[in-house]
Amino acid sequence: MATLEIRDLHVTVATDDGAKEILKGVDLTVKSGETHAIMGPNGSGKSTLAYSIAGHPKYTVSSGSVTLDGLNVLDMKVDERARAGLFLAMQYPVEVPGVSVANFLRTAKTALDGEAPKLRTWVKEVNTAMEKMSMDTAFAQRNVNEGFSGGEKKRNEIMQLELLNPKFAVLDETDSGLDIDALKVVADGVNRFRAQGDRGVLLITHYTRILRYIKPDFVHVFVNGRVAEEGGPALAEQLEAEGYDKYVKAATA
């Protein structure tokens, strides 16, 4: 049983006009086995939350804490967070020219395990992970995300999620830009990950569409840099019907 705990998290980003506060006191607890949906309008700070947990250098934590089983995540470097069990599926996965998917995955797996994977079983594992995401195994020889379509990039992210199998996954708008078939493939992958029973998921999304395929245990409405409302799956249905207007108005009032 593991716990990812975020307490009163304040995060700023540098702008031409000085530091701008994006997260204004986020409180959130995700336990293993739970799926939390974070829903909110554009610009509410959802992605900032995702990147801050992962440790992107662009974001500065001004106060608050993020702990994983009591360990201070904010003290860890980006790679140490991954090795501690965190994973971020990015909204815009980055192209890495000249680095093949196979090489990248093997390097990541080696770093996470502290030893190189056994070649024979590893190739099989990679191929299986790709097939599950309806990816041609030829993808392994292509450069990371280079020339991938939007849908291929997202499938590549979830393929890594299954293969690297972290304790907690933060999925940053993994559903955006996907057609319904690709969305199902991606949702199936996330559901297989959840089905292990002891994995935590923080599912960040703008739309309720993906929640038809991935059923959250908790829904948090994220507005203006903090959680404005919390509830069960029914809250998502209410948001689908009513939108974010009343929360946005309340936050700016």
Partner: peptide, 22 residues
């Protein structure tokens, strides 16, 4: 690029090596 590689557990030194290699 470095962030992406590091976010998968690859240490900074190794991430830099991969990027130059690439």
């Amino acid at each position: 690029q470095l962030f992406y590689l590091e976010s998968r557990g690859v240490p900074e030194r190794e991430a830099r090596r991969l990027v130059v290699h690439g």
